[in-house]
Design a protein around this nucleic acid. Structure first.
Lengths: 327, 327
DNA sequence: TTGACTTGTGTAATCGGTTGCCCGAACGCC
DNA sequence: GGCGTTCGGGCAACCGATTACACAAGTCAA
């Protein structure tokens, strides 16, 4: 393997100069710079990252910790993060937690051991309580989930407002008994519940919410039970794409007509929501932008660790389709 | 930061012994082992990975290079790979190539620079020509894409057979003019085309295939053009989930009735395929298993670099739904 | 002219572990 | 009892970069 000393020898300079040229240090003469670059090219030299990292104490690596990469929301976020990382010549390490606090803790430890430059985390509900970015040994940005009092950089949707808009739309479509299926294990689900509750209260309607695990199959099971009850609600709303998927499956399996028997709507504008008939009314999240903003915010945080924390709040967009039409 | 010498001091042993205990070296006395472990726990010592990697020349990291993590097939594969990696206390570094050979090359270089323990790669068509795992500086396993003569470990579907089964099913449903939309930029698309062609030939039918980029929007555009032609085919098959999605969108936009006007079927049993009405006939791939097998094969390869290359071929499962019913 | 500063480069210490080598003790065998 | 082997453990070299420090040469103002 060719090393820095080989390059130095071929260029007729010291290893220090080679290192300086390669790391873009300013005070190095034009002559030496050229000779070093020539030698680097001639030998196809690639610095040993392990050695560089040991000495410099920097890894140029960012960690991404999500509940499950298979959730299309996180899939898209991860792609955005990887794009930004790639543009900045940084690596991306990926972890899934399945919402399990123990596994989440283990992932955070892994990131610490890796000495990553920073972490993007979608925290479990459990971890978010009293969460402070400053308690962690690396810069950290939250995505998707964040409480109002959380002391950390974060990129999130305005969940309360989005759910309020969605609920109000449903009410204005003439529905009264509106059921809300929300992810019980995330702050996001809770906040969307708040928005729903507020909208219902504002119209003098009774809120009726059911918490479910944010997995399509669970949501389908719960929806099946709810739909088997004697009095069908006018509408059912889902607080996430996966829950909406399960709900839609349950309705189809039960042979219920949408929006005739019951209206539905939810979050996340996944491809299938406009493929089914009728199309499904959703609040679309700017998913890629959320991931990109999070990555860029993290890079700024890495560059300036002492700036005050920042929260980026993005807005959802209501996309009205047939599933929430008047009965 | 607490270092190995602190642990050694507290345990009253040499740093070498601490290192041996921590790396599971066999010849360490029970007494010393216990004292070291106690000290490690008391000090909450965590070895510095950069230092360890520099000296040991091992990173316990595996790289995953796919076209686009947003393709649900690769999403699931990556989750499986991460699960296996996590179980073996290894890290996962992720890269997307967008089928771009230059970016793919850059990702492979990145993996080399990282000195990863091994790589799982879904190669572009361009790279697969004359591909040999031995040409790479790390153990390497191919997923999803592999030619019959490729000299590399690989985990793939029996694409020819799967496409043959799907096509035969369509023919036996009474269709004659069957169009095949295949991913033009991957070996997988080509092989599925071969299976389709063989099945058509076996029944004395004329094959008619159109290559498309493996992106839903592209596939939709192509399908729109094809469906606007005067004579509608009896059926259209898609060689991948994304292409199938675009095809389905185009049919819906054009107001064509399935299977009345035209039958459709394709690959990948994604949730939406049984959500639309009628459900869509597909060949389901054992996606998670493909990822798991690839990761496990890679780990075996890392453990035994000189064993002969192995190819794991998994079978798809035909799931018949309404979209391919008799007209 | 000289002292203070700046600029460019080299020397060598350093990052924090792993591991080759060596040595002493214990053990088994004749 | 002597000798060869095995076992356990310590010393110190080593992995391959970065960077603190030293220093030589050049610049400039007083």
């Amino acid at each position: 393997m060719t090393q820095i000393r080989d390059v130095a020898a071929r260029a007729g300079v010291s290893v220090a100069s080679v290192s300086r040229v390669l790391s873009g240090h300013p005070s190095v003469g034009e002559d030496i710079r050229r000779r070093v670059l020539d030698a680097v090219k001639a030998l196809d030299y690639r610095p040993d990252l392990a050695a560089r990292r040991l000495r410099s104490r920097r890894t140029d690596t960012i960690g991404l910790i999500v509940a499950d990469i298979r959730n299309p929301f996180f899939t898209e976020v991860s792609r955005a993060v990887e794009d930004v990382a790639y543009q900045h010549r940084m690596r991306l390490i990926l972890c899934n937690t399945d919402e399990d606090p123990a596994r989440e803790a283990s992932c955070l430890e892994l990131m610490r051991d890796e000495n990553v430059s920073g972490v993007i985390l979608a925290p479990s509900l459990h971890r978010l309580a009293g969460f402070r970015a400053a308690d962690h040994p690396f810069p950290l940005v939250l995505v998707d989930r964040c409480d109002p009092d959380t002391v950390a950089d974060a990129v999130v949707l305005d969940n309360v407002e989005a759910a309020r808009v969605l609920t109000t739309h449903t009410i204005e479509s003439g529905r009264r008994r509106i059921l809300f299926l929300h992810g019980a294990s995330s702050a996001t689900g809770r906040q969307r519940l708040d928005g729903y509750t507020a909208a219902m209260a504002a119209h003098g309607l009774t809120a009726e919410a059911v918490g479910v695990a944010p997995i399509a199959d669970r949501s389908r099971e719960v929806a099946q039970v709810l739909l088997a009850r004697p009095a069908l609600p006018d509408a059912v709303l889902a607080s996430s794409g996966l829950i909406l998927l399960g709900l839609t499956q349950a309705l189809r399996d039960a042979g219920r007509r949408v929006p005739g028997d019951v209206a539905i709507a939810g979050f996340d504008d996944q491809p299938w929501t406009r493929l089914v008939d009728p199309g499904i009314t959703v609040v679309a999240q700017p998913t890629y932008a959320i991931g990109r903003e999070a990555a860029e915010l993290l890079l700024r945080r890495i560059a300036a660790p002492d700036k005050p924390v920042r929260r980026v709040v993005l807005r959802g967009e209501l996309i009205v389709r047939g599933s929430s039409a008047r009965a």
